[in-house]
Design a protein around this nucleic acid. Sequence first.
DNA 1: CAAAATACGTAATATACGATACAGCGCTCT
DNA 2: AGAGCGCTGTATCGTATATTACGTATTTTG
Lengths: 275, 275
Amino acid sequence: MISSIAELISDRIGTMPAGERRAAQTLIANYPLIGLKTVAEFSAAAGVSSPTILRFVARLGFQNYPEFQSALQDELAAQLQSPASRTLNPPSPNGGAVSPMLEATLDNLRETFRHLSDKQLADIVAKLADRRGKTFLIGGRFTDPLARYMAAHLAIIQPNVFHLAGQESVWRDRLIDMGKRDVLVIFDIRRYQDSLVRFAETAHQRGVQIVLFTDQWLSPIARFARHVIAGRTAVPSAWDSSAALFVVAETLIGGVTRQLEADGAKRIRELESLR
Amino acid sequence: MISSIAELISDRIGTMPAGERRAAQTLIANYPLIGLKTVAEFSAAAGVSSPTILRFVARLGFQNYPEFQSALQDELAAQLQSPASRTLNPPSPNGGAVSPMLEATLDNLRETFRHLSDKQLADIVAKLADRRGKTFLIGGRFTDPLARYMAAHLAIIQPNVFHLAGQESVWRDRLIDMGKRDVLVIFDIRRYQDSLVRFAETAHQRGVQIVLFTDQWLSPIARFARHVIAGRTAVPSAWDSSAALFVVAETLIGGVTRQLEADGAKRIRELESLR
DNA sequence: CAAAATACGTAATATACGATACAGCGCTCT
DNA sequence: AGAGCGCTGTATCGTATATTACGTATTTTG
């Protein structure tokens, strides 16, 4: 069973002529980056000619050089998706069904935040804390609870926060209330819902600023979104995980709260006095 | 000090026009592989035209596309050499608002699961997957979305799953439907809601098995609960975090799904054929 | 040792890719 | 409301790249 190209190479390197073997060795030596460069660069690094490189990849079973490169990229993609941190954490003493799920979620969280800069979050917080406009939140079949969760918090610390729920026709009519100064927070992960996409498009046309929570494959709504948060969702389960998006949402909630406190919003002080 | 291209992007993404921002977002979303593909593929993935991609890389300061790709490859090479230094965002030495929140959440997850045995989870899974009884879910002010999230998934893979929402009087009347074989999943964290406690007590008297999601200080409902899941909730924010409970919920959802598949429930097969 | 077969590089060719010019459109600002 | 600017996509061009053909060198085999 050969799964990676590196294995494939070491499997067949014995049957290769001298020139191609040099190509194979240089590729293994700094795998896989040389293979992603041009044939000319690859050949120069290996000290052979271009056709030798092409014969080398042909011997590996690829039709042409681009196909070979695509395979390398796919392999890299798989590596980058599931980071090596899995090996860093103690390999779960109890090999139960629990740990894999937890480990994957921890990875997802780290990966999601790794792609999220402080500045990006600060921008979104500023937008959400801007009390001149209204804030609408909506989610898809499985993500609507996330919208609810966020709305439940935001609605306490500021006015004009609305969670859009129920029948499509109901929240579609709320478009009338939306304008340039308003923000629409949408949660949409695979499989992306047409109704949400249409809703987002119309809102966008009305000048509404869209903050999109989606997965790493990006909902089509990303086209219209001002800010996109791409969370990792892969876990060893039949379902995708929304945990990363959930934590980002909590982070934003905390940020907006802090922001409003800093702004000295009297609403916050009033709230405190109410307790 | 900007060291990686990803930082460079998140630094300037604010000043970019819409199209280029979409390019930036898709690149960040699956970094850096899209950038290693051709301009045509990159543009298709981002949903923009080729020139927009080229303008995007030009704005980042690169003379041409190949130069941009080389930079990405160099970065990848450095990463692959030392897997430990895979930090895209530097560990934010500036007390940025991001990391503390993330770190605390990661800790909470680990702690929560540390106090949770495989057996405990397996028991709950078995209980939830037992299709002889009904499953009810309910939550408090902030945790109701968690109940919704769990209900949304469970209701697909098995019948007789009900999320109790709306007015207290409404779900209180549903007590009539509950009996010994039924399960009631309650989410309740500080400040514990009296209405929920009363509800749980009555349900308990009727013989309903209660699965309680609460925080580490334990809701009074714990008295009546058959199973208690105590999640860590402390984060550097004005609000408590429900992330740990969320992840436990996802773990249970995954477990129940696997269980029902193993039981060969025909509902699961029917579902698959429906897709 | 001779002759064939295989391997390899040079040079020419075709393709696909990145780059550019230009026009249409929407947006902002006065 | 109108004029100007900036952004974006279409179509075209030039070029770098992969590919192929062919001749030479090297190894293999009888």
